[in-house]
Design a protein around this nucleic acid. Structure first.
Lengths: 229, 229
DNA sequence: ACCAAAAGATGTTATTTAACACAAAAAAGT
DNA sequence: ACTTTTTTGTGTTAAATAACATCTTTTGGT
């Protein structure tokens, strides 16, 4: 069982920003719960009353678009905060979040965050920085998903997963094991095309496949395919 | 000629956040200059040393993607700050900015902003809010541009321009007069298809065209087309 | 006022990708 | 262990859109 104290220890950037009183308020308001694989954490339209911190596991942030087709806009890796954007812009969630795999998530009331942030510029700067990074990535993603062809988008997604979740000790087996459907919503294509293109990449010895496990065999070639579009 | 003092008056949200000393530092460091139509303000890779405030005119933030194809990721309307994201995430610009039309832009050194923000949570919260809004829009844009078909994307862009820049007194002539090429990079399509689809919309009496001037005739129908994809 | 260059318009073709159909394999429930 | 459901894999067809070619109109420069 994880204690609230431990959670803050895993978030040094956040922890350092807090004054002793604020810290104890945060510890006091914090709740921790586990989510099963594929369980939804919040959905579009929900009111963002809590900020979330992924303690362990993997999470996707996605939007259900035209015809229920789902598009993953961002992925979260432990230990990282998420689910605070909508609260700061005073909207309901415009995205949904779900666990790729069994995950443990801490939550802190946004009320408390608002209260602290009003007097604590360090905490505010923490969010400025996180949001600025996310916005840059989102803009890059917009262009990648719209301008690249299928092969480019899939290559990009594979590299994106490596960057986001890293690899096993061998340095090439992706830690993230997504379903073909999730690979498709990450790459903006149909599931059929994700399956087909993954097979092609495997045939071309760019990757190897073992169920959902993806091993990168020729990263330079993937980079090139991703870059060329 | 505009005085620095006037600029702050046009940015009440920013102005209110500043203490008297900070305010005078900002006024002192502020520079104002005019940009010609289509002039570039910054480009990808530039170092973000200044925050910018659009005093008058219209600005596009865009990325040059695969094969030099340009994609507008966001548009700026007067009076609004921009060009600060990259500085906050400690990167060089990953986008470029250019003036749609003759524009006047004030700049404030980011150094100064960093210095103030360290002690002034109100200013930090100003940026948190702006970034949170921009990130929500960017995520929505990703899905709109990737999942909708040409007609849906163009309808969406027309409504987006209305929302961003408003209309003339008649309530339906868009204030923004973009080239067909800009309409295309806003809607993620080729210039030919932007021209063609605009003509179709005009034939269908959804809009009327007079050179670059777009008049919305049937907003409900555009909403529907945009929503259906 | 003239010329050159850029922007706008339109038709045709080729390519890309989604949609569909179906089969095999794997996973989950009973 | 069996059935049902979900996921994965593959081929085919149809639709959407980019690419290209050509022409006209407009704009900007001198």
């Amino acid at each position: 069982m994880i204690r609230n104290e431990d959670v803050l220890g895993m978030l040094p950037e956040l922890d350092r920003a807090l004054m002793p009183l604020e810290r104890s308020q945060v510890l006091d308001g914090m709740r921790v719960r586990a989510y099963r694989k594929n369980e939804q954490i919040y959905k579009e339209g929900d009111s963002p009353t809590k900020m979330l911190c992924l303690i362990s596991g993997k999470v996707k942030i996605y939007k259900d678009g035209v015809g229920g087709r789902s598009q993953i806009v961002r992925v979260i890796n432990a230990v990282e905060c998420f689910g605070y954007r909508a609260a700061f812009s005073d909207e309901n969630y415009v995205t949904a979040a779900a666990a790729f795999e069994q995950s443990v998530i801490a939550s802190i009331p946004m009320n408390l965050i608002f209260q602290i942030i009003r007097r604590n510029p360090q905490l505010a700067c923490f969010f400025v920085r996180r949001l600025a990074i996310a916005l840059g990535r989102s803009d890059a993603r917009t262009v990648n998903l719209t301008q690249k062809h299928i092969r480019g988008r899939l290559a990009e997604s594979i590299l994106f997963l490596k960057e986001s979740y890293g690899t096993a000790q061998d340095g090439c087996s992706l830690n993230a094991c997504l379903s073909r459907e999730d690979m498709a919503s990450l790459s903006n294509m149909t599931t059929s095309n994700a399956i087909r293109t993954l097979s092609l990449f495997a045939q071309e010895k760019l990757i190897s496949l073992d169920g959902r496990k993806i091993k990168i065999l020729d990263e330079a070639a993937l980079q090139k395919i991703s870059k060329m579009g």
